[in-house]
Write a protein that binds this DNA or RNA. Structure first.
Lengths: 162, 162
DNA sequence: ATTGAAATAGCGTCAAT
DNA sequence: ATTGACGCTATTTCAAT
Protein backbone atom coordinates (compact mmCIF):
# COMPACT_ATOMS: atom_id res chain seq x y z
CA UNK A 1 0.00 0.00 0.00
CA UNK A 2 1.64 3.29 -1.06
CA UNK A 3 1.66 5.87 1.70
CA UNK A 4 -0.19 9.01 0.84
CA UNK A 5 2.24 11.85 0.15
CA UNK A 6 2.11 14.76 2.54
CA UNK A 7 2.04 18.03 0.63
CA UNK A 8 2.87 21.45 1.87
CA UNK A 9 1.00 23.93 -0.30
CA UNK A 10 2.64 25.00 -3.55
CA UNK A 11 3.88 28.53 -3.89
CA UNK A 12 2.96 30.74 -6.82
CA UNK A 13 6.00 29.79 -8.91
CA UNK A 14 5.44 26.05 -8.52
CA UNK A 15 1.83 26.49 -9.57
CA UNK A 16 2.93 28.32 -12.70
CA UNK A 17 5.39 25.55 -13.55
CA UNK A 18 2.93 22.73 -12.97
CA UNK A 19 0.21 24.46 -14.97
CA UNK A 20 2.58 25.06 -17.86
CA UNK A 21 3.76 21.45 -17.92
CA UNK A 22 0.18 20.22 -17.75
CA UNK A 23 -0.61 22.19 -20.89
CA UNK A 24 2.60 21.28 -22.71
CA UNK A 25 4.90 18.75 -21.13
CA UNK A 26 7.61 19.40 -23.70
CA UNK A 27 8.13 23.08 -22.91
CA UNK A 28 11.85 23.77 -22.70
CA UNK A 29 13.42 24.68 -19.41
CA UNK A 30 14.19 28.10 -20.88
CA UNK A 31 10.56 28.72 -21.73
CA UNK A 32 9.45 27.52 -18.31
CA UNK A 33 11.92 29.81 -16.58
CA UNK A 34 10.74 32.79 -18.61
CA UNK A 35 7.10 32.00 -17.87
CA UNK A 36 7.76 31.76 -14.15
CA UNK A 37 10.17 34.70 -14.05
CA UNK A 38 13.05 32.79 -12.47
CA UNK A 39 16.59 31.80 -13.46
CA UNK A 40 16.99 28.75 -15.65
CA UNK A 41 19.04 26.96 -13.07
CA UNK A 42 16.38 27.60 -10.43
CA UNK A 43 13.76 26.33 -12.80
CA UNK A 44 15.65 23.08 -13.29
CA UNK A 45 15.84 22.57 -9.52
CA UNK A 46 12.16 23.38 -9.03
CA UNK A 47 10.91 21.03 -11.71
CA UNK A 48 13.08 18.20 -10.42
CA UNK A 49 11.72 18.79 -6.92
CA UNK A 50 8.13 18.78 -8.17
CA UNK A 51 8.72 15.37 -9.70
CA UNK A 52 10.51 14.00 -6.64
CA UNK A 53 7.76 15.23 -4.34
CA UNK A 54 5.21 13.38 -6.45
CA UNK A 55 3.29 16.52 -7.37
CA UNK A 56 4.16 15.87 -11.01
CA UNK A 57 3.77 12.10 -11.27
CA UNK A 58 5.08 11.83 -14.80
CA UNK A 59 4.98 13.39 -18.24
CA UNK A 60 3.47 11.21 -20.92
CA UNK A 61 2.37 11.37 -24.53
CA UNK A 62 -1.39 10.99 -24.94
CA UNK A 63 -1.68 8.47 -27.75
CA UNK A 64 -4.71 7.79 -29.94
CA UNK A 65 -5.40 4.10 -29.20
CA UNK A 66 -6.98 3.47 -32.60
CA UNK A 67 -3.87 4.76 -34.34
CA UNK A 68 -1.71 2.15 -32.62
CA UNK A 69 -3.93 -0.84 -33.30
CA UNK A 70 -6.29 -0.68 -30.34
CA UNK A 71 -9.54 0.64 -31.82
CA UNK A 72 -11.86 -0.88 -29.21
CA UNK A 73 -12.00 1.10 -25.97
CA UNK A 74 -14.13 0.14 -23.00
CA UNK A 75 -14.94 1.13 -19.44
CA UNK A 76 -15.59 -1.87 -17.24
CA UNK A 77 -17.40 -1.52 -13.91
CA UNK A 78 -16.25 -4.28 -11.56
CA UNK A 79 -18.19 -5.36 -8.47
CA UNK A 80 -16.68 -7.38 -5.65
CA UNK A 81 -18.29 -9.78 -3.16
CA UNK A 82 -17.05 -9.89 0.40
CA UNK A 83 -14.52 -7.06 -0.02
CA UNK A 84 -11.62 -8.93 1.50
CA UNK A 85 -8.84 -6.42 1.79
CA UNK A 86 -6.32 -8.81 0.26
CA UNK A 87 -8.45 -9.28 -2.86
CA UNK A 88 -8.92 -5.57 -3.31
CA UNK A 89 -5.21 -4.91 -2.94
CA UNK A 90 -4.20 -7.63 -5.36
CA UNK A 91 -6.63 -6.29 -7.91
CA UNK A 92 -5.32 -2.75 -7.46
CA UNK A 93 -1.72 -3.87 -7.86
CA UNK A 94 -2.07 -6.40 -10.64
CA UNK A 95 -4.69 -5.12 -13.07
CA UNK A 96 -2.72 -2.02 -14.11
CA UNK A 97 0.07 -4.31 -15.26
CA UNK A 98 -2.10 -6.13 -17.77
CA UNK A 99 -1.40 -4.88 -21.30
CA UNK A 100 -4.30 -2.79 -22.61
CA UNK A 101 -5.18 -1.22 -19.26
CA UNK A 102 -5.09 2.56 -19.48
CA UNK A 103 -6.25 3.34 -15.97
CA UNK A 104 -7.95 1.84 -12.96
CA UNK A 105 -10.04 3.64 -10.33
CA UNK A 106 -11.02 2.21 -6.97
CA UNK A 107 -14.34 3.81 -6.07
CA UNK A 108 -17.09 3.91 -3.48
CA UNK A 109 -20.62 2.65 -4.12
CA UNK A 110 -22.15 -0.36 -5.82
CA UNK A 111 -19.22 -0.54 -8.23
CA UNK A 112 -15.80 -1.16 -6.70
CA UNK A 113 -13.54 -0.47 -9.70
CA UNK A 114 -13.68 1.23 -13.04
CA UNK A 115 -11.18 -0.17 -15.54
CA UNK A 116 -10.38 1.79 -18.70
CA UNK A 117 -9.17 -0.50 -21.50
CA UNK A 118 -7.99 -0.31 -25.11
CA UNK A 119 -8.14 -3.54 -27.11
CA UNK A 120 -7.29 -4.71 -30.59
CA UNK A 121 -10.75 -6.15 -31.22
CA UNK A 122 -14.09 -7.00 -29.61
CA UNK A 123 -12.82 -10.54 -29.41
CA UNK A 124 -9.83 -9.46 -27.39
CA UNK A 125 -12.04 -7.31 -25.17
CA UNK A 126 -14.20 -10.29 -24.28
CA UNK A 127 -11.14 -12.39 -23.49
CA UNK A 128 -9.70 -9.58 -21.41
CA UNK A 129 -12.79 -9.23 -19.26
CA UNK A 130 -13.16 -12.97 -18.75
CA UNK A 131 -9.49 -13.71 -18.16
CA UNK A 132 -8.31 -10.69 -16.23
CA UNK A 133 -11.35 -9.24 -14.50
CA UNK A 134 -14.23 -11.69 -13.96
CA UNK A 135 -11.89 -14.60 -13.36
CA UNK A 136 -10.15 -13.11 -10.34
CA UNK A 137 -10.51 -13.79 -6.60
CA UNK A 138 -13.31 -11.74 -5.07
CA UNK A 139 -14.84 -10.46 -8.29
CA UNK A 140 -18.61 -10.93 -8.52
CA UNK A 141 -19.48 -9.11 -11.71
CA UNK A 142 -18.07 -7.01 -14.54
CA UNK A 143 -20.21 -4.72 -16.66
CA UNK A 144 -18.59 -3.58 -19.89
CA UNK A 145 -19.44 -0.33 -21.68
CA UNK A 146 -17.97 0.41 -25.08
CA UNK A 147 -16.43 3.87 -25.31
CA UNK A 148 -17.73 5.88 -28.27
CA UNK A 149 -15.68 8.99 -27.62
CA UNK A 150 -13.28 10.35 -25.00
CA UNK A 151 -12.35 13.94 -24.21
CA UNK A 152 -9.73 15.43 -21.93
CA UNK A 153 -10.74 18.27 -19.67
CA UNK A 154 -9.54 21.51 -21.22
CA UNK A 155 -8.60 23.20 -17.92
CA UNK A 156 -5.37 22.40 -16.07
CA UNK A 157 -6.46 21.22 -12.63
CA UNK A 158 -3.68 23.33 -11.17
CA UNK A 159 -5.15 26.59 -12.34
CA UNK A 160 -6.28 28.48 -9.24
CA UNK A 161 -8.65 30.65 -11.30
CA UNK A 162 -10.87 27.73 -12.18
CA UNK B 1 -18.50 16.58 -34.51
CA UNK B 2 -14.82 15.88 -35.11
CA UNK B 3 -14.17 13.57 -38.03
CA UNK B 4 -12.40 10.37 -37.11
CA UNK B 5 -8.81 10.45 -38.29
CA UNK B 6 -7.85 7.90 -40.91
CA UNK B 7 -4.63 6.16 -39.96
CA UNK B 8 -2.28 4.24 -42.14
CA UNK B 9 -0.45 1.77 -39.97
CA UNK B 10 2.66 2.98 -38.15
CA UNK B 11 6.01 1.64 -39.18
CA UNK B 12 8.47 0.21 -36.72
CA UNK B 13 10.30 3.49 -36.13
CA UNK B 14 7.13 5.44 -35.41
CA UNK B 15 6.08 2.79 -32.92
CA UNK B 16 9.40 3.11 -31.12
CA UNK B 17 9.05 6.88 -30.96
CA UNK B 18 5.47 6.80 -29.69
CA UNK B 19 6.25 4.16 -27.09
CA UNK B 20 9.24 6.14 -25.84
CA UNK B 21 7.23 9.36 -25.56
CA UNK B 22 4.45 7.53 -23.76
CA UNK B 23 6.92 6.38 -21.13
CA UNK B 24 8.73 9.70 -20.86
CA UNK B 25 7.34 12.67 -22.73
CA UNK B 26 10.38 14.79 -21.93
CA UNK B 27 12.95 12.61 -23.66
CA UNK B 28 15.26 14.82 -25.71
CA UNK B 29 15.20 14.60 -29.47
CA UNK B 30 18.74 13.28 -29.33
CA UNK B 31 17.74 10.43 -27.02
CA UNK B 32 14.72 9.63 -29.16
CA UNK B 33 16.85 9.51 -32.29
CA UNK B 34 19.35 7.20 -30.64
CA UNK B 35 16.58 4.90 -29.38
CA UNK B 36 15.03 4.67 -32.84
CA UNK B 37 18.34 4.46 -34.68
CA UNK B 38 17.71 7.43 -36.97
CA UNK B 39 19.26 10.86 -37.55
CA UNK B 40 18.24 13.64 -35.20
CA UNK B 41 16.80 15.70 -38.03
CA UNK B 42 14.71 12.75 -39.17
CA UNK B 43 13.53 12.27 -35.65
CA UNK B 44 12.35 15.87 -35.43
CA UNK B 45 10.37 15.43 -38.65
CA UNK B 46 8.84 12.15 -37.50
CA UNK B 47 7.75 13.42 -34.11
CA UNK B 48 6.24 16.53 -35.62
CA UNK B 49 4.36 14.37 -38.12
CA UNK B 50 3.08 12.08 -35.38
CA UNK B 51 1.62 15.07 -33.59
CA UNK B 52 0.16 16.58 -36.74
CA UNK B 53 -1.45 13.29 -37.72
CA UNK B 54 -3.10 13.11 -34.30
CA UNK B 55 -1.39 9.90 -33.31
CA UNK B 56 0.24 11.75 -30.46
CA UNK B 57 -2.58 13.98 -29.22
CA UNK B 58 -0.49 15.88 -26.73
CA UNK B 59 2.16 15.57 -24.06
CA UNK B 60 1.03 16.49 -20.59
CA UNK B 61 2.25 16.38 -17.02
CA UNK B 62 0.24 13.98 -14.84
CA UNK B 63 -0.45 16.02 -11.73
CA UNK B 64 -1.49 14.75 -8.29
CA UNK B 65 -4.84 16.48 -7.79
CA UNK B 66 -4.54 16.48 -4.01
CA UNK B 67 -1.22 18.29 -4.24
CA UNK B 68 -2.80 21.19 -6.10
CA UNK B 69 -5.80 21.67 -3.85
CA UNK B 70 -8.24 19.19 -5.35
CA UNK B 71 -8.28 16.29 -2.89
CA UNK B 72 -11.78 15.03 -3.74
CA UNK B 73 -11.90 12.93 -6.89
CA UNK B 74 -15.05 11.35 -8.27
CA UNK B 75 -16.36 9.34 -11.18
CA UNK B 76 -19.88 10.34 -12.12
CA UNK B 77 -22.09 8.05 -14.23
CA UNK B 78 -24.57 10.18 -16.19
CA UNK B 79 -27.76 8.78 -17.72
CA UNK B 80 -29.74 10.59 -20.40
CA UNK B 81 -33.44 10.44 -21.27
CA UNK B 82 -34.52 10.60 -24.89
CA UNK B 83 -30.99 10.70 -26.29
CA UNK B 84 -31.57 13.69 -28.53
CA UNK B 85 -28.45 14.01 -30.62
CA UNK B 86 -28.19 17.72 -29.92
CA UNK B 87 -28.19 17.19 -26.15
CA UNK B 88 -25.52 14.52 -26.36
CA UNK B 89 -23.33 16.71 -28.51
CA UNK B 90 -23.67 19.75 -26.31
CA UNK B 91 -22.78 17.66 -23.30
CA UNK B 92 -19.74 16.22 -25.06
CA UNK B 93 -18.52 19.65 -26.11
CA UNK B 94 -19.27 21.67 -22.99
CA UNK B 95 -18.59 19.45 -19.98
CA UNK B 96 -14.85 19.09 -20.68
CA UNK B 97 -14.55 22.88 -20.47
CA UNK B 98 -15.83 23.03 -16.91
CA UNK B 99 -12.93 23.49 -14.45
CA UNK B 100 -12.31 20.33 -12.46
CA UNK B 101 -13.16 17.92 -15.28
CA UNK B 102 -10.26 15.58 -15.96
CA UNK B 103 -11.91 13.44 -18.63
CA UNK B 104 -15.24 12.53 -20.14
CA UNK B 105 -16.19 9.26 -21.83
CA UNK B 106 -19.29 8.74 -23.96
CA UNK B 107 -20.25 5.09 -23.56
CA UNK B 108 -22.77 2.44 -24.56
CA UNK B 109 -25.21 0.85 -22.12
CA UNK B 110 -27.38 2.07 -19.27
CA UNK B 111 -24.90 4.85 -18.50
CA UNK B 112 -24.30 7.40 -21.24
CA UNK B 113 -21.26 9.25 -19.86
CA UNK B 114 -18.59 8.78 -17.28
CA UNK B 115 -17.17 12.05 -15.98
CA UNK B 116 -13.90 12.05 -14.04
CA UNK B 117 -13.64 15.04 -11.69
CA UNK B 118 -11.26 16.56 -9.17
CA UNK B 119 -12.74 19.00 -6.66
CA UNK B 120 -11.57 21.15 -3.77
CA UNK B 121 -14.11 19.71 -1.34
CA UNK B 122 -17.17 17.48 -1.02
CA UNK B 123 -19.19 20.68 -1.00
CA UNK B 124 -17.79 21.68 -4.35
CA UNK B 125 -18.38 18.19 -5.71
CA UNK B 126 -22.04 18.37 -4.84
CA UNK B 127 -22.37 21.79 -6.46
CA UNK B 128 -20.54 20.55 -9.53
CA UNK B 129 -22.86 17.59 -10.05
CA UNK B 130 -25.99 19.66 -9.48
CA UNK B 131 -24.92 22.69 -11.51
CA UNK B 132 -23.02 21.15 -14.38
CA UNK B 133 -24.32 17.60 -14.79
CA UNK B 134 -27.81 17.00 -13.41
CA UNK B 135 -29.01 20.45 -14.35
CA UNK B 136 -28.40 20.08 -18.08
CA UNK B 137 -30.79 19.43 -20.99
CA UNK B 138 -31.42 15.73 -21.49
CA UNK B 139 -29.81 14.51 -18.28
CA UNK B 140 -32.00 12.12 -16.25
CA UNK B 141 -29.67 11.00 -13.52
CA UNK B 142 -26.13 11.28 -12.18
CA UNK B 143 -24.59 8.71 -9.87
CA UNK B 144 -21.45 9.85 -8.09
CA UNK B 145 -18.72 7.51 -6.87
CA UNK B 146 -15.86 8.83 -4.77
CA UNK B 147 -12.46 7.75 -6.03
CA UNK B 148 -10.31 6.14 -3.33
CA UNK B 149 -7.30 5.46 -5.53
CA UNK B 150 -6.30 5.77 -9.19
CA UNK B 151 -3.58 3.92 -11.08
CA UNK B 152 -2.18 4.37 -14.56
CA UNK B 153 -1.68 1.29 -16.69
CA UNK B 154 2.00 0.39 -16.61
CA UNK B 155 2.19 -0.76 -20.25
CA UNK B 156 2.42 1.70 -23.14
CA UNK B 157 -0.57 0.93 -25.34
CA UNK B 158 1.70 1.24 -28.35
CA UNK B 159 3.86 -1.71 -27.39
CA UNK B 160 3.20 -4.47 -29.94
CA UNK B 161 4.51 -7.15 -27.54
CA UNK B 162 1.69 -6.59 -25.11
C1' DA C 1 17.07 28.14 -2.27
C1' DT C 2 18.69 31.25 -5.93
C1' DT C 3 21.76 33.11 -9.01
C1' DG C 4 24.93 34.18 -13.34
C1' DA C 5 28.44 32.42 -15.96
C1' DA C 6 30.91 28.85 -18.37
C1' DA C 7 31.34 24.41 -20.58
C1' DT C 8 28.77 20.84 -22.60
C1' DA C 9 25.12 19.23 -25.17
C1' DG C 10 21.11 19.57 -27.98
C1' DC C 11 18.13 21.79 -31.53
C1' DG C 12 16.63 22.88 -35.91
C1' DT C 13 17.82 24.60 -40.77
C1' DC C 14 19.54 23.42 -45.12
C1' DA C 15 21.56 21.77 -49.27
C1' DA C 16 22.20 17.27 -51.07
C1' DT C 17 20.56 12.69 -51.98
C1' DA D 1 11.78 11.03 -46.65
C1' DT D 2 16.48 10.92 -44.91
C1' DT D 3 20.83 12.56 -44.06
C1' DG D 4 25.22 15.04 -41.94
C1' DA D 5 27.01 19.33 -41.01
C1' DC D 6 26.75 23.80 -39.18
C1' DG D 7 25.32 27.87 -36.53
C1' DC D 8 22.56 28.86 -32.83
C1' DT D 9 20.25 28.00 -28.52
C1' DA D 10 19.41 25.39 -24.41
C1' DT D 11 20.90 22.58 -20.55
C1' DT D 12 23.35 21.66 -16.58
C1' DT D 13 27.12 22.26 -13.37
C1' DC D 14 29.21 25.12 -10.01
C1' DA D 15 31.10 28.60 -6.99
C1' DA D 16 29.09 32.42 -4.67
C1' DT D 17 25.37 34.48 -2.14
Amino acid sequence: MPSRPEHRPLDEIDRILVTALEKDGRLSNTQLARTAGIAESTCLTRVKALRERGIVRGIHAAVDPAAVGRPVEAMVAVRFGGHARAHIERFTDEVPQVPGVISLHHVSGATDFYVHLACRSAHELRDFVLDHLTNRPGVLHAETSLIFDSRRGTHPITDPMS
